[in-house]
Amino acid sequence: MNLDIKTTEIGASHYIVSLFGEIDAYTAPQLKDTLLSLIEKQGQLIEVDLQQVNYMDSTGLGVFISALKSTKENGGEVRLIHLQERVRRLFTITGLDSVITIDSTVRGGN
């Protein structure tokens, strides 16, 4: 399975990372590299758009945990937006929605 990553700089220290495809053990390293290299620049706001992600496994959650830990060290924030129901459920079950900001708008369906 593939994951396409599109990074758009929309303002000073503000990026939108749009994802297309699936986040699993194969695609997760690529996403991790993208996010961590953005966070390293310090004090960045990174919005991750998951509208086009219909599958994510626990490896994907691991990537967001790494990103969260890295923002604690480097300052900055990662926000998740436009989550599909199935992906959102993962963040809810694991309690990660209590430590990562998640856009409340739920986009439906598979």
């Binding site: 959650l61 945990i65 969260l68 079950i93 694991t94 309690g95 430590v99």
Partner: peptide, 27 residues
């Protein structure tokens, strides 16, 4: 943060999701 299990209530003959929330270990 564990996958919720199921609870079977014999009196009602009904399954429900075992409730409970908490952050995964290691975060």
């Amino acid at each position: 943060g564990h996958e919720p299990g199921f609870f079977y209530d014999a009196t009602k003959n009904e399954f429900t999701e075992i409730e409970g929330r908490g952050l995964v270990l290691g975060v």
